[in-house]
Nucleic acid binder design. Structure first.
Lengths: 349, 349
DNA sequence: ATGAAAGCGCTAACAT
DNA sequence: ATGTTAGCGCTTTCAT
């Protein structure tokens, strides 16, 4: 009968059972130290029989490594994040590290509390997707390595997508299809990534066409009155949204007012969330390699934990246009000529 | 200057700084033991000045409580789960407990590995959403308290929705609207909850109308050939899907074949995932109170951790029909007469 | 009311 | 190659 429940065998007990010292037992279990082959084999055999499982807490206390990292994201309910979280979890687990998830619910206060809780609980590192561009948590970190996603905070390793290029790609696509009067609904502008997208898109539109209007929105399909108003009065033939969620909201609103998408107005999004292709019409959008970014975040963090004094790194991922059905051509030509304006289409994937 | 970074103050250091013993310091910090009011106040003051933060690992090693629980779900990428996870995280945090998330990617093997990792890492308890009806992890638990979501495993606390009633509700709604020929695409039938839904729906259909066909599907909008085939050859005027994700897949397929929903065929889903109302047409579905179930899971687990020997509990939540736009009436009557067949519509919310 | 001290289970010098 | 031992930071019993 095995001791499946209750009392776990300790290293000391294992050592006694094997007739060796705790040190030898530890060495055997961890593949460390110098041990005779037969001794090692013997200890391992007994360990297996006894179903020895090291107490990770004790181990952590000695080594200062918990084998756990934290992931702090704004909102798991936003369809952009589950993919990210899942990939982080999987990647981490491949290295035997577990991940604590905290969500900040969009509040800087929650963000601070979450980080504090995690740091005090003892994590080896943190992957942080901040809600704003301010370093709200620096003083709470107490030396915990951090990699920052999506934002541009100094003093941390950074994982980003080329948001600026994304904005240009979106604008260029519309311009190439004959659109000249373009409106943009940005994401919350206190986020660096949203500003990057918006500025690049607006810059391109101004250069090649004309900016119909520009409003700031939240990351939600529920549109502020300010947005619906501008939409209703709009003469724009196309709108760029700062996120797919917003784009979906825009399309819904347009449709509810009887304007056809993309028949009368084209809409392009950002992120390529899973819903994008299920939407009616399927959403044309700018995709970023979320999974790869998640993997990069974990790997960067793990490396940082190993080598705390290596120079900080900043990894920027390429973005790409995903053409689906929410954007139409204004010109009557059947052939689509995309003026890339010096932008290289492509992706790392 | 505060010691914001690096070396945390230890209890011993705090004790020395306050000129007391470690025991007194511990008592003061934890509000335990018996201590003079002034002594306590003094120690606390010094602790605040020094920004003392207890080492939770050491504490955990002594007390056997880590203040962390695990959440094991099949797939964060399935829109059903983020809400659940988020609510679990929030609820847990309110009690100061952090949550490790693991996803099983639909494999029993991963499930076992994830649970092992968590248990060995040291969690106080586990919230488990199994992928099948088998207890794949029992022997790995080593006494860790577990509450099981959505399935009907014995030996654990159970949190469920009234899936059977949900199936009846869906069928009754269709029947009441004049549908008689109804098809059903079930979820994976190795899941108890999917069977409950399917059996109840099919039973009701057989009693009040006729079952056109029934096929098993995966939790995905991508339909198996077996399903699309049956859909294409179907004479059913309505289909019940075992999950919203499936319902969306069915609608997409129907639309792609030029059949109007709900004009020619009505479709009803299950779960009321966030996207259900964003779908075109907005999805009529059976909702379950996910957030409340998540809260109940955490509370049940926390109580179980406190009192391991209390009798097991099983909490069943009510479900409700959410009428949107994917179901139409077959009769020409404008008034909808729902024959509830003894079922009480209502919800706990 | 306060303090001394024994560990929790483990790792890693440091012996031998 | 193997064993002895000193802690990691904390809680808690037992003295005082």
């Amino acid at each position: 009968m095995t001791n499946s429940a209750l009392k776990r065998i300790t290293l000391k007990e294992l050592a006694k059972a094997a007739g060796v010292s705790v040190a030898s037992a530890s060495y055997a279990v961890n593949g460390a130290g110098s041990l005779g082959d037969s001794t090692r084999a013997h200890i391992l055999k007994i360990a297996a029989e006894l179903e020895y499982r090291p107490n990770q807490l004790a181990k952590a206390m000695k080594t200062g490594r918990t084998g756990a990292i934290g992931l702090v994201v704004p909102d798991l309910t936003n369809p952009f994040f589950p993919n990210l979280a899942q990939t982080v979890i999987q990647t981490a687990r491949r290295s035997g590290v577990s991940v604590f998830i905290a969500n900040t619910e969009g509040s800087a206060d929650q963000e601070r509390k979450s980080v504090s809780l995690l740091v005090e609980r003892g994590i080896d590192g943190l992957i942080w997707f901040p809600i704003v561009d301010t370093d709200t948590v620096g003083p709470l970190l107490r030396g915990t390595p951090v990699v920052v996603l999506d934002r541009n905070l100094s003093g941390y390793d950074l994982i980003q997508a080329d948001y600026g290029r994304g904005g240009e790609l979106a604008a260029a696509h519309l311009i190439a299809l004959g659109h000249r009067h373009i409106g943009v609904v940005t994401g919350p502008l206190d986020a660096w990534s949203a500003r990057q997208r918006a500025n690049a898109a607006i810059g391109y539109i101004r250069a090649q066409g004309s900016l119909a209007w520009s409003v700031e929105g939240a990351f939600s399909p529920d549109l502020d009155p300010a947005i619906t108003k501008v939409l209703d009065e709009s003469r724009a033939t196309a709108v760029i949204a700062g996120a797919d969620l917003i784009a979906i909201g825009v399309i819904r609103h347009l449709q509810s007012k009887g304007v056809a998408v993309p028949g009368e107005v084209s809409v392009i999004g950002f992120d390529d969330i899973p819903w994008a292709q299920l939407n009616t019409p399927a959403l044309t959008t700018i995709e970023m390699p979320v999974e790869e970014m998640a993997v990069a975040a974990v790997e960067t963090l793990l490396r940082r934990i190993e080598k705390p004094s290596e120079p900080l790194r900043r990894v920027v991922f390429n973005v790409a246009l995903v053409e689906r059905a929410s954007v139409g051509s204004l010109s009557s030509e059947a052939t689509i000529q995309v003026d890339e304006g010096g932008i290289t289409l492509g992706r790392l994937k």
